[in-house]
Design a protein around this nucleic acid. Structure first.
Lengths: 233, 233, 233, 233
DNA sequence: CATGAATGAGGGTTCATTCAT
DNA sequence: TATGAATGAACCCTCATTCAT
């Protein structure tokens, strides 16, 4: 085992660094404040990081790692049918927004990337778009998204739109109705990019929602068999 | 008379300030560099601005003023029919993107607003969304957008999506095919938010585009009368 | 005749310089403010003075010259008898204090002499003491002051004491009862330094003052003949 | 532990600050020079003071504290009889002047208070006068000073006179005969303000001095019994 | 490992002075 | 003469980084 105090100190510093960077931005964050909040001295900071910038990078990277672990790849075991995919994506978006809401202070860090650090913010955003693009292509392959839509533009619109919603959320005094926002957004992108099959699934979802309130994965499974029955009849 | 005032001095300083702020961000921009690039001394800078921050604000405000003058209000004299509105909006978006492409260095400035200047960026983005929201409502009133779509969410998705495209554009080495991007985006938002009437207009546009290439306002006028004829028959 | 505008400008600058030096002190006085208040430009200032310090010196010197013209030399035609000398000195002190009261803003200038300018203040004070010393010696020669008093110390005490009164006066919100102060002071120095003859003259003055109110030179002339009569009787 | 804090650092800085302020005045004193003379860097200065002005205040305040501890209050255990009081005051003045002689560089600092710091000098001088005034009143109560003398004016004359002597002393190349100066001054103020009893005591002192040289407290005690004997006879 | 005093480069700002007009 | 834009040397203060303990 490595020495505990050492690790504790670094973890502690990373946490307070995240805090301070979020509050003040990279330039205005002071090494001393980071160290003090971690209950350590300025000198200790330099036992763990060679510079303030390095600490910043590590904070960003650790955040990105946490993000990656939350965002599934489209080739994983996820629902492939229209109804299931819709619910899956909705719930995934919901939990992602929830996570961003909790990390909303951190999102400000990304904004503080300027000059030499700008690439970090861009890398983060590019990653998000890339991942989104893989999903768009996957859904096109599944016949859920129209094949003629440009996956790059689609991914940009989705990520950008969601980023703006997150910005609004971050700026808001109190937590906005994320569920509503996401349902509205999903409707726009499903109609905007989806095949007829997906759009019909969405309409079923809306219909169910209107009659029964919130639709969960459980509802969807029931609905799927019902739909099969209906199409048979 | 004194040494002839260099009437270009302030303009020159504002331009180089814009440059340097774009490159380095507010914190990392050095007053001396701004002045030097304008062919002036550090001291001269303070003949025109009381502080670096004031110069930053003036740069931002002058940009916002230029923006405002480019963005029309929905209650102005603009086409009210589906075909005309589509073309108008497309062409407006195109010229806006063109302007942003030329000002792409500046857009980086908005990103460099942190701490005390953050409100400038947020005010800019909020303004954009507000304007977009007015357009959404106007189109709903005209029967072009579905009345059940949430105008706030819609405006956020549109602005966020376009902002992301602009980010991609700004980061690109060479000018991307903005026309293509915008056509794809318009298709997404028209399908996502539009009424059947608008969607049909879009399909006509796409059809015409496929057969004849770029559609201009002139084409649309022809098409409009054709459509009228068709609906009569 | 030299050119008028030129002279006007310099006089004007000297006057405003005096004002500003009085208000702010040498270091904090800005050349631009001096020039502006004189209705001139910064550049003009340097047509008349080679530096701010030179202007300061000229202001001080002009003040000292005005002072000198007000302060009589002991070898001039002044009363030589005890009663006349007392009244003369009292009235001279009174007018001097009156002048200082009016120039109280200026006195602050002397306080702003530091570093390289310190010699100006010291020269001013030394001058005052030197002049006072000549008076002490003159009065000793006239048998009005005790011959065993050290003229240097006496002059220092007188000047220092009066300077402190002036300081109190300068700091005061409203004009203090200078006449009272000076009468009290004169009593102290007359008793402290005077011969019996002078002390008796002072007592006569006090007596007359008690019975008749303010004593003027006219009263003294009367009193002198009265005293002669008395000593005869 | 960190690098052993140089416990002398702050003391050292205060001392060199005192030096530099005395030489140049507040405005012209450079932080770097203060630090350099203390063998420290500019940055270290700010570990101990938040600004140059704060350092200046601390220098002044520490001097004032030292002064206060040297100046006795009149209600303390001090000789109440004419002879004892004279000797006490003379010796006290002597030691005070001695102290001021040693701190003569500092006294120049008080003169360098301008603008925002002027109140420091005025507070110092006002304090001195106030204290002196308490002594005048005490001596009046003891029947040593004439009751009709204005205590305010008397205190101003005493303090001002002594201040001027100190100024002369401070400006002098070599230490002047302070003892002589003070004896002369005391004679002036005793005659000027004292009752007959005090004046006679002073004359006894002068007489003794003429015959025996310096009079010490021991002499006074002998003299006191002698005087008692004389008054008895 | 931890500390925090010490460092010193760096940058914003001021303002006396110059000089082209 | 008069002007005031331009200059640039100074100087205060900050803070990332070092290092003796």
């Amino acid at each position: 085992m490595s020495r505990t105090p050492d690790l504790m100190a670094k973890v502690s510093l990373l946490r307070t660094a995240e805090e301070v960077f979020a509050e003040k931005g990279l330039e205005n964050a002071k090494v001393e404040e980071i160290a003090k909040r971690a209950g350590l001295s300025k000198g200790s900071f330099y036992l763990h990081f060679t510079s303030k910038e390095e600490a910043f990078q590590q904070v960003v990277e650790s955040f990105l790692a946490r993000c990656s672990s939350l965002i599934p790849e489209p080739d994983q075991d996820v629902p492939k049918d229209a109804d299931g995919a819709l619910v899956f994506m909705y719930e995934h978006d919901l939990s992602t927004f929830e996570y961003f809401w909790q990390s909303r202070d951190f999102l400000r860090i990304m904004e503080s990337c300027n000059g030499d650090q700008a690439y970090l913010r861009d890398a983060f955003l590019d990653d998000t778009v890339k991942n989104s693009q893989r999903w768009v292509r996957a859904w096109q392959a599944l016949g859920l998204f129209r094949p003629d839509a440009d996956d790059g533009v689609a991914a940009s619109l989705i990520c950008g739109g969601y980023r703006e919603l997150i910005r609004r959320m971050t700026a808001a005094e109190k937590k906005p109705p994320i569920g509503e926002w996401l349902r509205d957004s999903q409707r726009v992108f499903v109609r905007g990019l989806g095949t007829d099959a997906l759009i019909r699934a969405q309409e079923r979802r809306d219909e169910a929602h209107r009659s029964k309130g919130e639709v969960t994965s459980i509802d969807v499974k029931k609905k799927k068999s019902a739909a099969r029955g209906a199409s048979r009849g």
